[in-house]
Every structure is written in C-alpha cells, then in structure tokens.
Simulated assay, not measured.
Amino acid sequence: MTDTFTIESCNKDNIQKIVAGINEYNLSKVPALSDVWTPLEYVIKNQDNEEIGGVLAGIGYWNGLEIKILWVKQGYRNKRIGTSLLKYVEKIAKEKGATIAMLDTFDFQAEEFYIKNGYTVTGEIIDFPKGHKRIYFSKKLNNYD
C-alpha cells in the first residue's frame, strides 16, 4: 500500500501546528534558555511626533537577538538615528540575557552600516536579487561594548 499526500494552503491552525512541531523538535536537541519569543519593537519620533524610524526585533529560545527590520526614513539617514536604534535594542537585549545578535540585509541597504557597528558577515547569497547580494551578519553581545 502506498501513501497519498496533499499539499494545501495553511490556515492559522496549520501554522501553529508547524511552529509547534519545529519548536518541539529543536528543543528536543537543544534546551531553551528562554521560554518564549520576547519582542523588542521600538519606534523613534521627531519633535513633531512623526515616526522617522524603527526596529522590529526579538529574543528567541537561545538568547539570540534577531533583528528583522531596522528602518530610518529618507531625509533622516546619516544622522546616527539608525545607530541609536541599533545600540538601544542591543542594550535592552543584553539586559534581558541576549548573547548574540543576528540579521540579514542587502548590499543596496545597509551592509556598511552593520559593519561599522561591529557586525561580522557570516554568509552571503550572491546574485539575489539579480546583480546584488543578500548578506547575513552576527555580532557577539557583551557587557563592555
């Protein structure tokens, strides 16, 4: 007898089952240092209360700071706003026990910015998107930055 399978679009219950399944497997291999995802999401505003930047990040099971998005509005770039956001989220993450930070960016976004802020390239996907590269970074977090 052969098994037959179907592939379908996910609903919320399917997504929860998939996440629970990979978490169960991962935690069977390496115990968690933290119970849950701790979101670290901050916005920065100008004197007119206008949102001019922000960071969406969080700390996962193994005390890693995962930076998903760091954005600064055009016209406010190169004024150390991005650096302020980055240093702030790193500081909060360290206070919460994070030992490493990780992220990815593209060469047309912020490659030099992250290098200037102490991040090390850990990998690249060349020609994605075509003519560019996606770059993966990490940085050890310690208490004497």
Rank of each mutant, 00 (worst) to 15 (best):
A101Q: 04
I115M: 04
K87G: 00
G82P: 02
N63I: 06
G123P: 09
Y88W: 08
K133T: 10
A98E: 03
K133G: 08
K96S: 04
P129L: 13
F113S: 00
T99D: 00
W62N: 09
K68E: 13
K68T: 11
E66G: 07
D104W: 11
V55Y: 00
V89G: 02
G64C: 09
Y136W: 15
I115Q: 11
N78R: 12
K130F: 15
N63T: 08
Y136H: 14
D104G: 01
T105V: 08
F113E: 05
L70I: 15
Y88R: 06
K68H: 08
G123W: 15
I126V: 14
D107R: 00
M102F: 15
F128L: 14
I126K: 12
Q109R: 01
L141K: 07
F128D: 06
G123C: 08
G60R: 10
S138C: 15
K79G: 03
T122V: 15
K68Q: 12
E124D: 04
D127Q: 14
A98C: 08
F113Q: 05
A93Y: 02
R134M: 13
K116A: 10
F137A: 08
L86S: 01
P129D: 00
M102D: 06
I81E: 05
E95R: 04
F106V: 01
L65G: 09
N117E: 02
G131V: 13
R77K: 12
H132F: 13
D127E: 12
I92E: 10
E124M: 12
K133D: 09
F137Y: 15
D127T: 06
L85A: 08
D127W: 09
N143W: 15
L65W: 06
L65M: 12
I100F: 07
N143C: 09
E95L: 01
A93N: 04
K73H: 10
G97T: 05
I135V: 15
M102P: 07
F137D: 06
I81V: 14
G97P: 02
W71Q: 00
E90Y: 01
F106I: 02
Q74H: 09
R77Y: 11
D107W: 03
K79L: 14
G118T: 05
G123V: 13
Q74F: 11
E111F: 02
S138E: 15
K68N: 13
G131C: 08
G64Q: 13
S138R: 15
N63H: 11
L86E: 03
Y88E: 02
I115Y: 07
G118N: 03
T122A: 12
